[in-house]
Design a protein around this nucleic acid. Sequence first.
DNA 1: TCTAGTGACGAACACTGTTCGTGTCAAGTA
DNA 2: TACTTGACACGAACAGTGTTCGTCACTAGA
Lengths: 244, 244
Amino acid sequence: MAGMGSDEDVPAPPWRTPRKQAQSRPQLSQELIVRTGLAILDAEGLDGLSMRRVAQELGTGPASLYAHVANKDELLEMIYDEVLGEISLPPPDPARWREQLRTYGLEMHRVLMGHADVARAALAGIPTGPNAVRLAEYAFGLLIDAGMPPREASLAFDRFTLYISGDAYEGSLHYAKMRAARMSDPEDYFHRYVERISDYLRSLPPGRFPHMTRHVDALIADDGEARFEYGLDLLITGLAERMP
Amino acid sequence: MAGMGSDEDVPAPPWRTPRKQAQSRPQLSQELIVRTGLAILDAEGLDGLSMRRVAQELGTGPASLYAHVANKDELLEMIYDEVLGEISLPPPDPARWREQLRTYGLEMHRVLMGHADVARAALAGIPTGPNAVRLAEYAFGLLIDAGMPPREASLAFDRFTLYISGDAYEGSLHYAKMRAARMSDPEDYFHRYVERISDYLRSLPPGRFPHMTRHVDALIADDGEARFEYGLDLLITGLAERMP
DNA sequence: TCTAGTGACGAACACTGTTCGTGTCAAGTA
DNA sequence: TACTTGACACGAACAGTGTTCGTCACTAGA
């Protein structure tokens, strides 16, 4: 048959099982699965991210993913660490540890908040991926080189980082609620949220909740970003008191 | 037939549907469902808590629960608030706001950590139940009466509380992992965890992670409680700097 | 050539939260 | 008294989830 023309002109006989179709989808890999998962999370939020959803996006079935990731938790951990990889920090300068620690906080927060509700993926475990360790080395090293004893520096950066991810996590909750309410504009959501909270606060019995009811405006005055930075600065102030 | 003896001596014919059985289970109520849910969470962790599990414990089917709670998220919110109800605080004394704020933090943490991984139930939403509001009034009021302007007091107690629940949340993660590993002794789990982390840290390339690899002992020296209190004290120190 | 390991993946499993439809009961109204 | 309405209870079913098991195809090494 060789040389008698392209075999595409002759239909294959029905009893012949065709060779496996030429691959029209990418070769699976862990990296590809993580990237796809992150893209889905960015577009649809964490609740939109399922093994089936990822597989669908890759033109395969969910079972195929398990050759590359142990389970969904592991996938979430990797996605989280992938996001941490976007954090870009200036070279450490211990003489300016206050400013640089603040930058670390703002940058980490910015990156986490830029990925839908990814902070909820920290659910999956205690971050120990390559980027998490890179960030730890940065903050830990900065404090040590600024003069803090290692043991205290360990506590300090740990708590600092916990605060950041805790706040990002809370932001995630709001994000998920915004999505559940079919709203897409964060400002819109924020106003609605504030309205509901303040109505609620005003409805409380003044006898039992004198401070809350008297200062509703103060309670709802600041948005998430202001709250985050306030807490950052509290921690930094506390650290400065302990710095040798 | 009346008067011819107890009808218990005569078996009912098989075509007759017996009257609804006398209730051998408690009357359902929201309170009962919440209490049952909490008992299950205490015994089996949050992952053990499903609508079916609660229903099973109450001798009914999961659909019955929906007459009393809107959905699982609502149940989790109520369970969380129920737990917050166990927090017992001394009467506010603004002159001792530092000590009392610390007590607030320790007490809240103690209660949360005493209920398996309940902190993960904060997942379900921003706490607005009666006990959450009671605690907010306490901390907010304390700071205001100590001299802090309401707007700043709002930020302060909010951040303080976020830090506490963030840490409790992290504790929840460890709890869930401990359960997944079939371990029941927290000390055992902690030692194992520390061992694995320190092995990991020691395996990092010293060139890229000089501080981490050189100070492994410092990094693993403190347990969760010490870390929590360290962060508490940082925040309190920061607040003291801002108190008029 | 044969074997073992790896990757791909369909079918199936166990489980979850929730809805729908139906029955029972109690309270209120005509 | 009879009828209507609302609340509660709950079985069956639905839609969805993460994961495992078994099978096939392919590749590399003995």
